[in-house]
Amino acid sequence: MAMLHASTPPCCTVGLNRSSHRRSASNHRFLLKQHLLGRRAAPGFATRAPAEDASSRSVIVARSLFDNNKNGDDFGDRIIAALPFLLPLLDGLPYAKFIMLQYPFVARAFAPVAPLMYIYHAFPFAPFLVFLAIYNGIVNNTSLPRFVRYHAMQAVLLDVLLIIPQVILNDVWKAPSDELGLQAYILAYNTLFLFTAVCSAYGMGSSLVGLTARLPLVAEAADYQVRDF
């Protein structure tokens, strides 16, 4: 009798096993569902960054090298803008005779320009004709970009500035005989050459790389003379 009360009927045992199996399977499906939902929610909701307004996004604008000239982005235009600076350079080279004697490397640096200088000064009216060609063919040619005409105008004005010192040094104030006057004369020659050479090199280099050069003494006047019609 004690054995009958202590033991559990077989049908009850089977029922309990089935019930526990159902609970175990249900718990397993619940945990699996939570796990899968967690994996799906990670990229969809948990880690998604808040939507940005298009107006709040930072915009990166690539700026061109030619932003400040706006018309000098063509390589041919840059060459045409650089060539007029040969005019003041060739007119200023005669004033380099003292500095070339003192520093021979300056003469070697300008040796490639020597044939062009010889041709330029070989004909009496060559400087005047080149001046007119640049002024009428480039500066007043409104079909060319302003970048080209502006640099050509600066080269023309720089060449015009050489007229006054040329008259003073060649006709009015000739080479003095005293030592102090000779030193001042040489200093005037060297200063005139260095100013012309540096301005011409700067204007030519800026034109070739597409940058707008603003030379001292002539930039404002060139701005006034060159206008876009």
Rank of each mutant, 00 (worst) to 15 (best):
P145M: 07
A133I: 07
T47R: 12
L83Q: 02
A152S: 09
I138K: 04
I138A: 01
A107R: 01
N136T: 14
L65T: 09
P43M: 02
P88S: 11
Q34P: 01
F147I: 07
L87W: 07
K70H: 12
R57P: 05
L37E: 08
S58A: 14
P124M: 15
G137N: 09
A109I: 06
N141M: 04
D159S: 15
L37M: 10
L90H: 08
A133D: 05
N140Q: 14
F85N: 01
Q102W: 04
K70R: 14
V61Q: 10
L87E: 03
A122I: 06
S58P: 10
T47A: 08
A46L: 12
F66Q: 02
L65S: 14
R40S: 11
D74K: 10
G76Y: 03
A111Y: 10
L90V: 00
L161E: 14
G38V: 04
N141I: 13
F105G: 05
I134M: 04
A152M: 08
F131N: 13
F110W: 11
A126C: 15
R48P: 02
L32R: 12
F131T: 05
I80T: 07
N69L: 13
R40G: 06
G38C: 04
G92D: 02
L129N: 05
N68I: 12
S64R: 08
P127R: 15
H121S: 06
L157M: 05
G137R: 14
P112G: 06
A41K: 11
P145Q: 14
N68R: 15
M117P: 03
D77V: 00
F128G: 11
L129I: 15
R57V: 14
G44N: 10
K70L: 15
R48D: 07
L65R: 15
A82Q: 00
R108Y: 13
I119E: 07
L157F: 07
L158Y: 04
L116M: 15
A122T: 11
L161V: 06
K97W: 00
R63S: 12
L89R: 01
V130R: 14
V130A: 15
R40V: 08
M100F: 02
S143D: 11
Y150L: 15
A54E: 14
F85M: 09
F98S: 00
V148H: 05
V61Y: 06
D53T: 13
A96Y: 01
F123W: 14
S64Y: 06
L162N: 03
A42H: 11
P88Q: 03
M100S: 04
D53L: 07
P50W: 08
A54T: 13
R108W: 10
R39E: 05
D77M: 04
V130E: 11
F110E: 00
I99T: 04
R78H: 03
L132K: 12
G92Y: 01
A114N: 08
V106M: 03
Q154I: 09
I164M: 14
P94V: 04
F75S: 07
L101K: 01
F75I: 02
F147E: 02
P115C: 13
R63V: 11
A54P: 10
F98E: 00
F75D: 03
Y150I: 11
I119Q: 15
V148G: 03
Y135A: 04
A155C: 09
N69M: 10
A109M: 06
N136D: 12
A155D: 01
L89W: 00
M100Q: 02
L144E: 09
